[in-house]
């Protein structure tokens, strides 16, 4: 019951946030330097006053600002994000085309980090100040502190250039392979290096967070109570230490999930991965504002959505929250 009413409340807030983002986006367009009509007219190769008027009325730019805003919000709500200036295609189509590639990459990296990170962190926490612990912490810090493009380039150098085991860029081979199975395998081979690059960056935080959180929890009184009850060590570690230690990790994982769409710009660029990040990068350099705004809106929606999921998960995991 309290969860339901909470979720209902959240939905209302989330809608308000999305609306605010949309309006902000609208003003971002208007803040872009220059008059879009002049840009478009210039690109069309004609620049007389009459043509400009024509363009303005075609695009509704001559109407009052509130009406333009209403039209824009209406368009967004009906999933019409306009045309890409460069590609001359609907932005929505381009986003949906690129979304799977990005989700595949960031999703794999995310799962890799989320499964392995807390596990390694927990192992380190149960044997603090051993060689395993110190080594793991140093390695984790190394991958966290090193610029992500540099790790990517190093991996390419070692595994593609030196060893020749894995392809250095792209999502598929230049020469198409035949058969569904072979195609899947081909994509997977391309996926390993970029996903590893991103995953190594993500994982560091999970390792350190889990370790710190577990060490903090282990010294708490109720862990001593659990031992005093005669519970076996594994039960103490899982039901009493890890269970509460995971709370900050859930929060962090949820917030990070929100950035899965927009967070891979560098890796996608280094590995020429045909995803949203790469699209945003190109759109930025080509001043393709509609496309860029489309990417912004999509990222914002993801962040809002995963924030909500996170909040719900945390509330489910920690009964103390939201019931004061």
């Amino acid at each position: 019951m309290r969860h339901l009413s909470y979720i209902a409340g959240w939905m209302v807030k989330a809608l308000a946030v999305v609306l605010a983002i949309t309006i902000l986006n609208f003003f971002l367009i208007r803040m872009a330097p220059g008059d879009p009509a002049i840009v478009l007219a210039g690109e069309a190769g004609a620049a007389d006053e009459q043509f400009l008027e024509q363009v303005r009325s075609d695009f509704g730019l001559d109407r009052p600002l509130p009406i333009q805003l209403a039209a824009y919000v209406g368009n967004v709500l009906t999933l019409d994000l306009g045309q890409s200036y460069r590609a001359q295609r609907p932005v929505v189509d381009m986003l949906f085309e690129r979304l799977p590639a990005t989700l595949l990459l960031t999703g794999s990296a995310y799962l890799f980090a989320l499964l392995l990170g807390p596990l390694l962190g927990a192992l380190a926490a149960t044997r603090p100040r051993t060689i395993f612990d110190s080594l793991l912490m140093v390695v984790a810090l190394f991958f966290y502190a090193t610029p992500i493009f540099w790790v990517g380039l190093l991996l390419i150098l070692v595994f593609s250039v030196q060893l020749g085991w894995l392809p250095p860029f792209g999502m598929q081979s230049m020469i198409p392979v035949s058969g569904a199975w072979n195609q899947t395998l081909d994509v997977l081979r391309h996926l390993i290096l970029p996903a590893l690059t991103l995953g190594l960056f993500y994982i560091a935080v999970y390792v350190r967070l889990t370790r710190a959180s577990m060490l903090e929890t282990s010294s708490l009184d109720y862990v001593k109570t659990a031992r005093a009850k005669g519970l076996p060590e594994w039960r103490v570690a899982t039901a009493h230490v890890l269970r509460t230690a995971l709370l900050p990790i859930i929060t962090f994982a949820g917030l990070q999930a929100g950035h899965l769409v927009g967070g891979a710009v560098v890796v996608e660029t280094v590995f020429a991965w045909p995803g949203i990040g790469r699209l945003a990068f190109d759109a930025l350099f080509q001043r393709d504002y509609n496309l860029l705004l489309g990417v912004f809106l999509l990222s914002a929606l993801m962040v809002v959505f995963f924030n909500m999921i996170t909040d719900i998960l945390v509330r489910l995991a920690d009964p103390r929250i939201g019931s004061a």
């Binding site: 005669g230 039901a239 509460t244």
Partner: peptide
């Protein structure tokens, strides 16, 4: 471990902290 909790029980000082908050 087998003796703890069955033949010898223990109660701690801080009841606010001695119970697992999420169980």
């Amino acid at each position: 471990r087998g003796i703890r909790g069955s033949r010898i029980g223990m109660v701690f000082q801080e009841p606010m902290a001695a119970l697992n908050p999420v169980m």
